[in-house]
Simulated scan of single mutants.
Amino acid sequence: MTHTLVAGGGIGGLAVALGQARSGHRVTVLESRPEFGEIGAGIQLAPNAFHALDALGVRDAVAGRADFIDELRFMDGTTGRRVAAMPLTGGYRTRFGNPYAVVHRADLHRALLDGCRDAGVRLLGGQRVTGYEQSGGQVTALTAAGDRFPAEVLVGADGLRSAVREQLVGDGPPRISGHTIYRSVIPMSEVPERLRARAVTLWAGPGWHFVHYPIGGGDYLNLAATRDDGARREITGTPATRAQVLAEFGELADSARQLLELGRDWRIWVLCDRDPVDTWVDGRVALAGDAAHPMLQYAAQGACMALEDAVALGTLLRCDPADVPQRLEKYNGVRRERTARTTRTARWMGSELYHPAGPCAAERDALLAGHSAEDLHDAVSWLHGATDFIST
């Protein structure tokens, strides 16, 4: 039996831990915070995420708190005109084998945490991994508390500012995108009936966009408004006033503005990512999730890619401990191109799809409006479908 250490107890780390446990390994998760929990708001789960959740054995637990979405709507944010919509029922679900859903981050995290507990994963809080050492057939995780944890495998799933990545890749701080996002969650009971929908709705404007969708089994509405404002300083969850948010999106069309005005307890993040790299592996150490390939929100695939990583690692590490380095190299090769393409696609969507102005926006609208439902499904097939590796 292989002993796997996982640095980080967020969504990616718990998914990796669960994948390892389901493959018969002994697993220890080292989390920097004293308690295992998740903050934030809603995230989107395309069919590829549900394929991974099924492989991890927690699909039903997540689906029980998810909101299944009927369509992705693209609106002109200033005029309120409907530009295009991609249906997510019927032929979409048949083609991709699973639905498209949205879920509160805490609900997804809880399902993975419960799965880890049921599988006997050892969960240790207050253990921030600061680095690692390797010798012979072992790797040892070093923590800020001064403890040492030896094992046969270490997976760094410790997020955007991963200490494991810093030692393995050494590429410094993350790239600041220059995009600021304002997030709020409001009770659905406060939303007028005519503005409720089983949809992810995006209102695109010049240098900004606004997204909203139901979460929490339909009990809440997730609001996320983003401005391409050239921000150069990292901000993580700082409070913002209602007046500040409304002033940033003064051009927003009436229906969307009514929803924005309902927001409260707003918080601000400045979005960051990293350039894709070729190597995530060092001997018995590998990266996963945001530690390996942090990406901007625009493709709605960050969590999905982390779940895929977990399934890939769980499949590949069904091996003799002596074969771990070679299997991790294969994992690196299997996941590198797909996640790099997704990272670059997310950047492209943020600049070229969501935020154009003037003639460029008009060209975008004409292009989207000219696509059939099948055309739109073709465009996302490489991303939303199960990869050959995951489906085996």
Rank of each mutant, 00 (worst) to 15 (best):
K330W: 11
V311T: 12
L160T: 05
V211F: 12
D54W: 05
E193S: 12
F210K: 03
S23H: 05
S177I: 04
D70E: 14
I181Y: 04
G283Q: 07
A299K: 05
L296H: 02
L368T: 00
E352I: 00
A151L: 02
W269Y: 12
R364P: 10
G8V: 09
A66R: 01
R344L: 15
V164D: 07
C272V: 00
L259A: 11
R148P: 13
R117S: 13
Y331N: 02
I235Q: 10
S177R: 01
R73I: 08
H209A: 04
E308V: 09
S177A: 09
T94A: 14
F149D: 03
G77I: 10
G250L: 15
P321F: 14
H212K: 05
H104G: 06
V83Q: 03
A243I: 01
R122F: 00
E308L: 08
Q326P: 04
A379M: 15
A288C: 10
G77E: 10
I176M: 01
S162D: 11
D54G: 14
V129Y: 07
Y220F: 13
V245Q: 08
W266L: 12
R82E: 13
P34G: 05
D309P: 08
G217R: 11
L108C: 07
R26C: 04
T236H: 13
G170T: 13
L160G: 03
D70C: 01
D118R: 13
A231N: 05
G137D: 14
L123P: 01
D67N: 15
F210G: 06
L56F: 07
A224K: 02
L307Y: 01
R267Q: 14
A204N: 15
D290G: 08
V153C: 03
V245W: 06
G178N: 08
G77A: 08
L53A: 06
H104C: 03
A21G: 04
R338I: 00
T226V: 15
W203P: 00
D309W: 07
G283R: 07
L56M: 04
V169C: 10
T28N: 04
E152N: 04
Y132K: 06
D147H: 13
G125F: 10
R110G: 09
R105C: 06
T238M: 09
S184V: 13
D309A: 03
L353K: 00
E71A: 15
A49R: 10
H212Q: 09
A61D: 15
L246S: 10
Y354I: 02
G80I: 13
R81E: 15
E248V: 12
T89Y: 01
R242G: 11
D228I: 06
P173G: 11
G302N: 05
P294Y: 09
A292S: 06
Q138I: 00
